[in-house]
Design a protein around this nucleic acid. Structure first.
Lengths: 341, 341
DNA sequence: CTGAAAGCGCTAACAC
DNA sequence: GTGTTAGCGCTTTCAG
């Protein structure tokens, strides 16, 4: 019924006194260091249990100069993706990759300038040993500020072609290229693409892959076969309508997101086209497609689990041995074929 | 191209030296304390800027005994709700409520026992000044352990009728009661309910409200009109099918979740019932209903924004002035009528 | 209004 | 193996 007053936390020194040893020894025990006689270790542990001792992390940080925590920053854009599998799966895999360490994962929301500033002080203030950032806007300097402050920093995706901060990304160029090559092999020749917002590097890459594949196949790349979308349902509809208008003979579409692929699909069907017999549609990932279309479309799948794992690996590496330069890791996508195109 | 080595962070002392003042003065300036001559304040700020000084938060915590951060814990159950508006809206409102403070919000995942233990050490170690917990399982002792450790702790929802930790909850009893009263006013007499898992307090409350309303109206409460679900689509279908089987004359259903309400709706329609003319359906919240049904059903809406705001308020209050006892706040729900039942 | 000094609780280096 | 000691960088009295 009555809440206990914040009990004065016992200190390491009190533990040492009770156990009849020095502070150093207690420190060694709680940090699981080797070189402590088994009997004394036991005595210390008993004292710890008896006192209900919990190490003061601020003191540990101050003396040991590390926080044993990393932050995963979600910016405004991510926030709207909160429910997206792409997002939650990545977070999950990051958590999984950290599960066997003593590193606490902290998710932080950075939506406003005030939050951004607060986080910057938090991170530069040493409360975390490293920072993971998701889908940062091209013009966002936060990653640079963190990296410049000497904090190990890893991005999911790159902001541009000459990203200066360590990053992990799916091989979007390769993925798009492979998808289009698949279409070509299936006999398609009139292949259009609905891109993402072209001020985003990921969208540029996917478009580049599309173009490369066409070039590889000796097919022309007329700009009229490319329509820019913004990853949303609405933009996908608009783009597909536009494409049908320009090129009634289109026989395949590469969409830069699953949402736009689904939208394209429904526009095509409404227009009386049969998918995939008449027109083939390929999107990136298929979280939404899996729910909204029947049958599911062929997709370029990103290795989300591996992305999270790799981000953590790079971060931990940089934490224990500061790298002089940034690194970029590209992970291969996988083409999941669900139709006989 | 080359990452700068972690620059040795300047300390408060260096700032003091450069500004030609004592450390105490610098401390007062960075903490915006009154009682510093304007000219010296300016001098200090110049030195801070020149050196790029950032306070070491570990040292500040150690000396000042506070972390300026609070954690919002997501347990396994929440995680599956990651994409749920109920979840993301609550997190958002918590973030908003904290936006004008200097308190950093940290979202933490607690899925496994290892993560749970790690978080406990993190929190008890003083890295946060308070903890918010979402939808904790009835048997979960984490909140008690935190509260016992003297940490201000606020729950979203209660684990049982005699919750011993401060909590904020929607008035589920009142909400269900109001919904059923509305049905009764509309002339319904054969009112069934699909409950949530009855080992969850929230489900018990909603069932109680249903029963109270029937009693209020002088209607009998036969157990055969109550079927237990688990908030999911599948359980809603099963329950509705069962109800139709038992009571073909059912003319209204109160479902303890929007998902189950949507499921009930589709089962009813498949059975040839007209909704709401023939059978009225009311659910709690309507994030899913809004997408999946047409027309949307009448719903009992929870004040999510207010819930987050209130949780933060209580937490901050307890942080600045430790309460002796826990408190519970119940927030009124709102019945959103979308049909002429 | 401001400087000096005493810790906050821990780690790590160094003796024994 | 284990005790001792010197800080880590800041807040907070307490003088002045």
């Amino acid at each position: 019924m009555v809440k206990r007053r914040p009990v004065a936390t016992p200190t390491l020194e009190e533990v040492a006194a009770l156990a009849g040893v020095g502070r150093g020894t207690v420190s060694r025990v709680i940090n699981n260091e080797a070189g402590v006689k088994e009997s004394t270790r036991r005595a210390v542990q008993r004292a710890i249990a008896e006192l209900g001792y919990v190490p003061n992390l601020a003191a540990r940080s101050l003396a040991g100069r590390r926080a044993d925590a990393v932050a995963l920053v979600m910016t405004e854009r991510d926030w709207r993706l909160f429910g997206e599998p792409f997002f939650s799966e990545t977070v999950r895999s990051v958590g999984d990759a950290l599960t066997d360490t003593s590193v606490q994962l902290l998710l932080t929301l950075v939506r406003t300038d005030a939050e951004r500033q607060r986080f910057l002080e938090y991170a530069r203030g040493g409360r975390v040993d490293g920072v993971l950032l998701m889908s940062v806007r091209a013009e966002d300097r936060l990653p640079d500020m963190l990296a410049d402050a000497g904090l190990p920093t890893v991005l999911l995706g790159r902001r541009s072609g000459d990203e200066q901060v360590t990053s992990v990304d799916a091989d979007n160029v390769g993925g798009a290229r492979e998808a289009v090559a698949h279409l070509v092999r299936g006999g398609r020749r009139s292949i259009a693409t609905i891109t993402g917002p072209l001020d985003m590097y990921v969208a540029q890459c996917r478009l580049r892959g599309y173009r490369q594949a066409l070039a590889d196949a000796g097919l022309p790349t007329d700009p009229s076969w490319t329509v820019e979308g913004d990853f949303t349902e609405a933009s996908g509809r608009r783009a597909m309508t536009e494409l049908l208008d320009r090129h009634p003979d289109v026989d395949a579409v590469l969409a830069a997101s699953d949402t736009m692929a689904a939208a394209a699909l429904s526009v095509l069907r409404a227009a009386g086209r049969r998918v995939p017999d008449d027109v083939a549609v390929i999107g990136f990932d298929d979280f939404h497609l899996a729910q909204h279309t029947d049958p599911p479309l062929t997709t370029v799948r990103q290795p989300l689990e591996e992305i999270g794992r790799t981000m953590v690996r790079l971060l931990l590496e940089e934490m224990e041995q500061p790298e002089v330069a940034w690194r970029h890791v590209l992970l291969r996508t996988r083409l999941v074929v669900r139709e006989s195109a």
